[in-house]
Amino acid sequence: MNTRLLMMMHVNVATVLNVGAVPHGIRRTAPLRGGTFEGPRLRGTILPASADWQLLRSDGVLEMDLRFTLQTDDGALISMSSFGLRHGPPDVIAALGRGETVDPSTYYFRTMPRFQTAHPVYSFLNRLIAVASGDRRPDGPIYTIHEVL
């Protein structure tokens, strides 16, 4: 599989909302305080009203449903939605839960971002599939987002 870097994204998470036990698992929502993204072809900030809707499944896997609105430095709006999975050894996941910085190679944290935009400069985003590797930091994740070529 060939990929190339699309952007690095730094996400700043606000206070997590614990929705609690729902029929599918344990649900919590992580609203974003903001963030930035930067890559060879686009850069800008993540707008409020972006969040990560998370579901902790009974098999211990965390499902993530990210809905972000991106604003490029030239004013274009891009809607990004992303499905992801995070899981790993119990001690590693516990360390993440305590807000510690953990080597991201010790757990699985991958997402599949999709983009929608009306802006012609960025319409290439409408036509591509991407894969992201996440690194959960105490103040929010860093995503390395690659375009699947």
Binding site: D59, V61, F83, H87, Y108, M112, L128, I129
Partner: peptide, 25 residues
């Protein structure tokens, strides 16, 4: 010439439970 998909799997079979935990292209 671009044709890419994002498959997902669900199974109850323990032998194939690894499919529940992976992302694929």
């Amino acid at each position: 010439h671009y044709f890419r998909t994002v498959p997902r799997f669900e199974t109850a079979a323990p032998k194939y439970a690894f499919l529940n935990r992976l992302l694929a292209i």
